[in-house]
Design a protein around this nucleic acid. Structure first.
Lengths: 188, 188
DNA sequence: ACAAGTCTACCTAACACTTGGTAGACTTAG
DNA sequence: CTAAGTCTACCAAGTGTTAGGTAGACTTGT
């Protein structure tokens, strides 16, 4: 049996993730995607049975990669330092050609996205909130307040990323995060 | 001169605003819009020269209505009470069939939206931040911190709205806002 | 007063184009 | 040879938009 070519499949996923972070599910189209990868649109169907499946696949990889990143942070640093570093994961998307996280597009497109994609993008939020909650608890917060606070931090950082992206200005993200810290909402 | 029928034009704008808040600029299409209004797609061109112009028109009305709402609040209440009431304006969109503010879609679709629409949606953010800044200053905050804090509050509330919408659960919005208040980030 | 002209508001029908998706043939490496 | 991987060549459905026409209400000159 011929060894499967994993290169194209991966190239498709990388390019599709970028496109989805820049234009959303609706803006993700096979012609531009194929061009970015260097193949013809029809060839994508050899690797993914449908657009929905492709999107679900990149969404899955997305939250799994995120989980790994967060684990890397919290296994190297104490809880408070980890929390301080949390905004960096969102900052990276902006640095990477002003893109935003898939979860933000979810809010915008939720009524127009296939369910199997929606489910995977939910998990991104779940992973983030669970990690934040764990860090808060480990840093001595009252157990009851951890999950609500985690959700609030997630919302606030996602909002900051959104506003910064809308102006294509990463300084706005930094400024907002700095204010969250100055107000004591985030540890500084 | 025959008196212009302002009813259809207004019906188009109301329906288009709802559609844009639910599906974004890309998801706003003339067939569904015309059906919602009760006319044929081509007839929309009698009132608006293009989709971009229609979108710009509703975006303009959007930030002007918002400015009026905020003025109503701050002229009836003291600055601190006004700030406390601020989240309500965002809550209304969620109550209205889980829609979000146009500015949030802007972040998602910014690279795919006509410039004339983009400009108008920017003004929505400007109006909000200017009002928040004014309230903060009037309530005794240091002048230098007002605008950064105003932007942070705007981002945080928009983020809360986004996360709540993604789950179609208005309780999440309330919970996040409550946490912003509990942490002292928002006045309570 | 009344016909001629003008304007509003909408229609039907088609336009050029883009979308996701399919069928089947070709190429190439093991 | 065989299967993976890619191709060419389509298609049906949907997009914003345009052209040209119609019914009826208003305005105007005589």
């Amino acid at each position: 049996m011929a060894s499967p070519n994993v290169i194209s499949k991966e190239k498709i996923m990388v390019a599709a993730t970028k496109m989805a972070q820049d234009h959303g599910y609706g803006g993700l189209n096979f012609r531009e995607l194929a061009e970015a990868v260097g193949i013809k649109p029809a060839s994508i169907y050899h690797h993914f049975p449908s657009k929905a499946d492709l999107a679900a696949a990149i969404a899955t990889k997305y939250w799994k990669d995120c989980a790994t990143d967060l684990e890397t942070i919290s296994s190297a640093l104490d809880p408070i330092s980890s929390l301080k570093k949390y905004p960096v994961t969102f900052r990276r998307s902006l640095q990477n050609e002003n893109r935003i996280c898939l979860a933000s597009f979810l809010a915008a497109e939720r009524t127009d996205i296939p369910e199997k994609v929606l489910i995977e993008v939910y998990k991104f939020a779940d992973v983030n909130i669970a990690w934040l909650s764990k860090m808060l608890k480990a840093s001595g917060s009252e157990e009851k307040t951890c999950e609500p606070r985690a959700r609030a931090i997630f919302a606030a950082i996602a909002g900051a990323q959104m506003i910064a992206r809308s102006r294509a200005d990463i300084d706005i993200f930094d400024s907002i995060v700095a204010d969250y810290q100055a107000s004591g909402f985030l540890p500084s």
